[in-house]
Design a protein around this nucleic acid. Structure first.
Lengths: 129, 129
DNA sequence: TAAGTGTATTATATGAACTAATACACTTAG
DNA sequence: CTAAGTGTATTAGTTCATATAATACACTTA
């Protein structure tokens, strides 16, 4: 459970999922949560790779996917920056939230659990904001 | 989206996840949903492999995991049968449901979405029992 | 005894993920 | 202009989980 701080970002890496996916998701979530101001510069590819002890190519793969979602903007020679467009951030956030909701509903249906039961199960668990 | 019927079971295989995991989950869900009576015999390893056009070893891997959870019982020379113990089924079902709830809550928290918002998102989606 | 079960073993194939090394292109501070 | 710091691209190789293949063995039952 090592926690690595790089610039404004926090990373917890493990081996359960592809590394590029973890980097991608953790930065994406940081943006969605507004942990970090719009326009913030991401750590450079080389720096992040060094800090996380992974390959630069792996970091680049994550950054490219962020770019594709327009959550970041890359300026050659300068770096990769979080978008300044709040709408884009909100849209991505809602898309991720909807996806999570659908996954949950799908799980419940696969188990043959109806809506009221699912809702009460959800009410039973602690949240801890 | 091919749908394959084998005995009392329905399978929809794709390439998004390991084959053994898909077989495992689909049978597990069928049991949890009580789609199939307790005590029912699963298709034989060879038959299921043939119908799904996958390797017998892959099917066996799924069956062994079901056995480990005590959702099935294997009798050498006879076959693999769903447990007759309703409690076991209920327990596994609730464990899977709890897991799904936790995953959902975790997703919401990673996005910085609070409980009331999550609940209202859930209310907004169609369910279609 | 034969046919149908699960089980085990060993070998091989495949593809995704990751690493490695290197070179190139662009920007900016000095 | 130059050097250092950016992202980008390419090619090669490693590693690991998954899946296949072929075969043999053990047990049950008709």
């Amino acid at each position: 459970m090592e926690n690595i701080q790089v610039g404004d970002f926090n990373f917890q890496m493990d081996l359960s999922k592809p590394l590029y996916e973890q980097v991608l998701q953790q930065i994406r979530h940081a943006i969605a949560r507004s942990d970090v101001p719009l326009g913030t510069k991401l750590p450079s590819v080389r720096e992040l790779a060094q800090q996380l002890k992974i390959n630069p190519n792996t970091v680049m793969r994550a950054y490219q996917e962020l770019d594709r979602d327009h959550l970041t903007e890359t300026r050659r020679g300068q770096g990769t920056f979080i978008t300044s467009d709040l709408d884009t951030v909100k849209q991505v956030k809602m898309a991720l939230a909807s996806e999570a909701v659908l996954v949950f509903v799908s799980s419940m249906k696969k188990l043959g659990i109806d809506r009221p039961t699912a809702e009460s199960l959800l009410k039973e668990v602690a949240w801890h904001e």
